[in-house]
Design a protein around this nucleic acid. Structure first.
Length: 645
RNA sequence: GCCAGUGUAGCUCAGUUGGCCAGAGCAGCUGAUUUGUAAUCAGCUGGUCGGGGGUUCGAAUCCCUCCACUGGCUCCA
C-alpha cells in the first residue's frame, strides 16, 4: 500500500501501482469524468500512469491552468493526427500549448495548406475525437526512437532526439498517430469537443530567420461546444474594439499609400487627444521638476556613432541623406540630442538631477511585416525625457519615475499590465550589450531594489535590456491579444561616458552622470492606440474630441442652441450643433454612435425654461439643467478627469 | 524581410464555371418634411474593379509582377 496526500492535507492509502484515475474514481465518478491530468509530487502526470511510491496528488481539471495546457497539448496531437491523414508524409516539429490554445509546426513538403483545408481538418479532428482513442505512454530507448524516426525519414524529430538523454524518452500514441513527446496527456481524445482551427502561418524552424520556414497551424479547443461558441463571440467583440477599426470610425487617424506605410496622419479628432495628452505630460513634468527642450528631427552620422546607436540599429533607421559629403540620419531616438544639450553647459553636482523632456518625433524603419496600426509605426512621437543624476540620486529619481507611471495609470484606469525588469545576457556582452559586466550587475541590482522598496510587482526577463543598461518595461495587450511595451524606464550607464558628459562633484572632481531614459506615456501612436481599445472608443470627457453635441429638435430652436454653444465655447468646452433638419431620434442615434459623451437636447420646453436636457452617451436622459449648472458639471468632470463606465 | 491570405463606390459588402452599359445598403448632394430621447420620404451623384503587364473574340473573374493591408514568424532603441 502507498500513502497518497491530498491538497487539503488528508492522507489515504491505496494499492501500490494505483493510477491517478483509479484514485479519482474511488473518490467520485464526477471527479473522474472531469479530471484531465494529475499533479503527482509537483509534476504533471497522465492519469493512467501507475504511482509506485508514497506521493502527494492534485487532480487537474479544465479550471486549472495546467489542466488546460495538458488539454491543449493533447489537442495539438489530435490535430497532428488529422493533418497526417489529410497530408500524408508531413513531418512534425513541435506542438505546444500556448496562452489561448495550441499550435503545431510542420513541414508539409510540396503541399500548400489553405483556409479551406482547416475546415477539412476540423472535421477530421471531430471524427477522431468521436473514436475516443486513449493517449498511451511508452518509455523507449534512444536507439529505438532513432530507428523509428530514421525509418520514417523525419529529420525534425531526430534533431529533437539528439538533445535528449537515453532513459528519458517517451512516445505517445493515440489512434494511428505516434509522436515523440514528454507528455503528459489527457486520458482520451473524446474529451476534446469544441474544436476550432484559428489560423495558418509560417514560422521559422527554431525561431531563427536563417532557417527554413515551417507551416504553423493554430487552434483552440474546449471540453464542450458551448465554451467554444462563447469564445468565438468574445473574439468578435474584441474585434469591435480594435483600434484600427475604431480609429477609422471615430476619425482619429488615417494612413495613405502615397504618404507611406507606418506613417500616421492624425486627423482633427486625434489631434485633440494628442494635445490633451501633451498638456497632461507638461503639467506633470513641470510639477516633477523637468525642463522642456526642442531638438531637430535629423542629425549627422557622427552623432549616432558617438552614441553607439548606429552599429546596433542601422537596419531600423531610415537610410541617410547625403549633403556635401556629410550623411544625415532621421533620428530614431532623442537621447543623443538631449545629451548634447547637457554637454552644452558646464554642470555642478548642485545642478543635478537635470531632467530634460521633449515630446520627440522619431523615425524608425520597422520591417514592413511588423507594422501594426498605431501600435507599430515608422514615425512616432515619444513622451521622452532624460534624467542626468549622480549615483546617490539614482534610486530616488528612478523611484520618482515609477511613481509617475503609477499616477498616470490611475488617471487612465489602466489596470491590466505587467512591469518587466529587462536584464542583459552576460553571453552577449560586447555584441548586443555594452561590455561593462560590473556596471550591468550593479545597475540591475539598483533597479531591482527600487522596485522591491516601492512594493511594485514585476517579473524579471533576461536578454531584453537596452544595449546601454537595464530597463523596466510596462507590457500591455491589444484587443486582439498582441503584447506591446506601452512605456519604458531605462538606466543608462554607457552613453554618459561615450558623450564625455561630466559634472563637478563635491570633491572638485569630474564625474560622469547616470542617465535615466523614461517614456511613461510611451508614444502618442501606441498610447492612443491603446486608449482606443482600453476605452472601446468611449473616451472620458477630458479626452473626448467633441465633448458636447447640441441637438435642436427643430430649426426653430437654432438660435437658442447657438446661444448655448457660445456659452460652452467661452468655457473652453468642445461643442458642436447638429443643425440638420433631421428627426431628433436620428440625431441622437448618430451622436451615440460617434461616442460623444454628452448631448444637449433643445426644444420648446427647454427654450421656454432657459434650460437644457442632458443626455449621456450609453446612459440616456439625465434630466434638465440650466446652462450654468451644465457648464459647471462639465468643468468639474474635465478637471477631475472623471471616468464614467 | 519570410510564409499564407485579401484588395470591387467615402464605408460595409454582392458579383455563379471568363460573356449584355459592374450591383445593394449606408454615407454624400438636392428637394420635401419642422420633428421630443438610437434610423422621415423622394430623386440624384459617385467605381482607372489596388497599379502595371499578359492570355483570350471577350477579364472584376485566369496567369505574371509590383504595391498596400490582414494573420503569423523574425524583429521591437
Amino acid at each position: 500500500m502507498i500513502n497518497i496526500t491530498f491538497p487539503d492535507g488528508a492522507v489515504r492509502q491505496y494499492e501500490q501501482g494505483s493510477t491517478a484515475m483509479d484514485i479519482a474514481k474511488k473518490i467520485s465518478e464526477g471527479l473522474a469524468r472531469k479530471t484531465l491530468a494529475a499533479q503527482v509530487n509537483g509534476e504533471v502526470w497522465d492519469l493512467s500512469r501507475p504511482i509506485k511510491n508514497d506521493a502527494t496528488i492534485q487532480f487537474l481539471t479544465w479550471d486549472d491552468e495546467k489542466g488546460k495546457s495538458t488539454f491543449w497539448h493533447s489537442s495539438a496531437h489530435l490535430m497532428a493526427e488529422a493533418v497526417e491523414d489529410v497530408f500524408p508524409g508531413v513531418k512534425f516539429w513541435v506542438g505546444p500549448p500556448v496562452e489561448k490554445g495550441f499550435y503545431y509546426d510542420m513541414d508539409l513538403g510540396e503541399n500548400i495548406i489553405t483556409e479551406s483545408d482547416l475546415e477539412k481538418l476540423e472535421k477530421k479532428m471531430n471524427e477522431l475525437s468521436k473514436q475516443n482513442n486513449s493517449f498511451t505512454r511508452k518509455e523507449i530507448s534512444k536507439a529505438d526512437a532513432i530507428k523509428y524516426f530514421t525509418e520514417k525519414g523525419d529529420e525534425y524529430k531526430l534533431d529533437l532526439l539528439s538533445n535528449l538523454e537515453d532513459g528519458n524518452i517517451t512516445f505517445y500514441t493515440q489512434g494511428n498517430f505516434t509522436d515523440l513527446c514528454r507528455g503528459p496527456h489527457i486520458p482520451s481524445t473524446g474529451l476534446i469537443k469544441g474544436i476550432k482551427l484559428t489560423g495558418i502561418s509560417g514560422a521559422y524552424w527554431k525561431g531563427d530567420e536563417k532557417n527554413k520556414m515551417l507551416t504553423r497551424i493554430y487552434g483552440v479547443t474546449f471540453p464542450n461546444q458551448k465554451e467554444l461558441d462563447e469564445y468565438l463571440i468574445f473574439l468578435e467583440e474584441a474585434k469591435k474594439r480594435d483600434h484600427r477599426k475604431l480609429g477609422k470610425e471615430l476619425g482619429i487617424y488615417t494612413m495613405d499609400d502615397d504618404v507611406g506605410p507606418g506613417l500616421v496622419l492624425w486627423m482633427p479628432n486625434g489631434t485633440i487627444i494628442i494635445e490633451e495628452l501633451e498638456k497632461l505630460a507638461k503639467e506633470t513634468e513641470l510639477e516633477a521638476g523637468y525642463k522642456r527642450v526642442v531638438t531637430p528631427h535629423i542629425a549627422k552620422e557622427n552623432l549616432y556613432l558617438t552614441s553607439g546607436h548606429l552599429p546596433y540599429y542601422q537596419e531600423s533607421m531610415y537610410p541617410p541623406m547625403e549633403l556635401e559629403g556629410v550623411k544625415y540620419y532621421l533620428k530614431a531616438m532623442n537621447c543623443p540630442h538631449h545629451h548634447k544639450i547637457f554637454a552644452a553647459q558646464q554642470h555642478s553636482y548642485k545642478d543635478l538631477p537635470l531632467r530634460l523632456a521633449e515630446y520627440g518625433t522619431c523615425y524608425r524603419y520597422e520591417q514592413s511585416g511588423e507594422l501594426f496600426g498605431l501600435m507599430r509605426v515608422r514615425c512616432l512621437h515619444m513622451n521622452d525625457a532624460h534624467i542626468y543624476c549622480t549615483k546617490e540620486q539614482f534610486a530616488s529619481e528612478f523611484r520618482a519615475v515609477n511613481d509617475m507611471y503609477i499616477k498616470y495609470f490611475k488617471i487612465f484606469g489602466i489596470e491590466k499590465y505587467v512591469m518587466r525588469l529587462s536584464l542583459h545576457d552576460p553571453k552577449k556582452l560586447g555584441q548586443k550589450y555594452v561590455n561593462e559586466p560590473e556596471l550591468w550587475i550593479e545597475t540591475e541590482a539598483m533597479v531591482r531594489q527600487v522596485m522591491k522598496d516601492a512594493n511594485i510587482p514585476f517579473v524579471e526577463v533576461p536578454d531584453e535590456a537596452a544595449f546601454y543598461g537595464p530597463k523596466i518595461d510596462v507590457q500591455i495587450w491589444s484587443a486582439i491579444g498582441k503584447e506591446f511595451t506601452l512605456a519604458t524606464n531605462q538606466v543608462d550607464f554607457a552613453q554618459g561616458r561615450r558623450f564625455g558628459l561630466e559634472f563637478k562633484n563635491q570633491n572638485n572632481e569630474m564625474e560622469t552622470p547616470l542617465i535615466i531614459h523614461r517614456a511613461p506615456l510611451g508614444t502618442h501612436e501606441r498610447f492612443i492606440g491603446f486608449l482606443l481599445e482600453h476605452y472601446a472608443g468611449k473616451f472620458p470627457l477630458w479626452l473626448s474630441p467633441v465633448q458636447v453635441k447640441i441637438l435642436p429638435i427643430s430649426d426653430k430652436f437654432l438660435s437658442y442652441a447657438e446661444n448655448i454653444l457660445s456659452q460652452l465655447k467661452n468655457n473652453d468646452i468642445r461643442a458642436e450643433i447638429d443643425e440638420r433638419s433631421e428627426k431628433i431620434g436620428k440625431k441622437i442615434r448618430e451622436t451615440e454612435l460617434a461616442k460623444v459623451p454628452l448631448m444637449l437636447i433643445i426644444g420648446e420646453k427647454e427654450m421656454n425654461e432657459s434650460k437644457v436636457s442632458v443626455r449621456r452617451q450609453g446612459k440616456g436622459d439625465e434630466g434638465t439643467k440650466t446652462a450654468e449648472e451644465f457648464i459647471e458639471m462639465v468643468k468639474e468632470e474635465v478637471k477631475n478627469k472623471t471616468q464614467i463606465n
